[in-house]
Simulated assay, not measured.
Amino acid sequence: MTLGLINANPVVHAKKERVVRTEDSHTDDAVDPLEIYDFVRDIRDPEHPYSLEQLSVLSEESITVDEKLGRILITFTPTIQHCSMVTVIGLCLREKLKDHFPPHFKI
C-alpha cells in the first residue's frame, strides 16, 4: 500500500548506459557537465526506490558549468508539481557534489 505518497505511481524510464571516458577524452582539469551527471544520476528519490535519472528528475542537459564564475548549476524537475521533496532532493545533490568538486565552485 502506498499511503502518504504524493505521486504513488511515477513514470519510470530506463537507465542510460554510462559513457566510458578515457584519459584522452578528458585531459584538462575542467569540470564537465557529463562528469557531474554521472556522479549524481544514481541518487535515489526520497519517496521511491528509483534514481533521479530513472524518474527523469535529472538529465544531462539540465547541468551547466561556468568555470569563470566557479558555478555548477543543476536544474531538476520533480515528478509532480508542488512536490514536497524538492528541498530534500536539492540538498542530496548539493551534499554529494560539495565534497567531490573543488572548493572554489558554488553549487
Rank of each mutant, 00 (worst) to 15 (best):
G4I: 06
S25L: 13
D38A: 03
I74D: 05
L5V: 03
V57G: 01
Q54A: 05
Y37V: 05
E60L: 12
D32L: 10
R71Q: 04
S62P: 05
M1P: 06
L34D: 14
G4V: 11
L52P: 09
S51F: 01
C92P: 00
V12W: 03
L91C: 10
A30Y: 11
E35H: 05
V57Y: 02
A14F: 12
H13F: 15
P102M: 02
R18D: 15
I6C: 06
V40Q: 02
P49N: 12
T87I: 11
D32P: 00
T75E: 13
V65C: 07
L58H: 02
L93H: 07
I80R: 09
T77N: 10
T64P: 00
T2Y: 09
L91V: 07
D42P: 01
T64S: 15
I36L: 15
M85S: 14
H100R: 13
S62C: 08
D66I: 15
G4C: 05
L69Q: 13
N9F: 12
P46F: 08
D29Y: 09
S56T: 09
S84V: 12
V20C: 02
L73R: 13
K106W: 01
T87Q: 12
K15A: 12
Q54E: 15
V31F: 04
V11H: 12
S25W: 09
H26Y: 06
E35S: 10
E17S: 14
L69Y: 06
F101I: 12
S51G: 06
K98L: 01
N9M: 06
S25Y: 06
A30E: 13
S51V: 00
E17M: 10
L93I: 15
K16W: 08
K68E: 14
H104G: 02
L52H: 03
L34K: 07
I89H: 10
E60M: 04
S51I: 01
G70D: 08
E95T: 13
L3W: 11
V11D: 07
H13D: 10
C92E: 14
V20I: 13
R21F: 13
N7C: 15
S25K: 14
R21N: 03
R41C: 13
N9S: 03
E23A: 14
P102R: 13
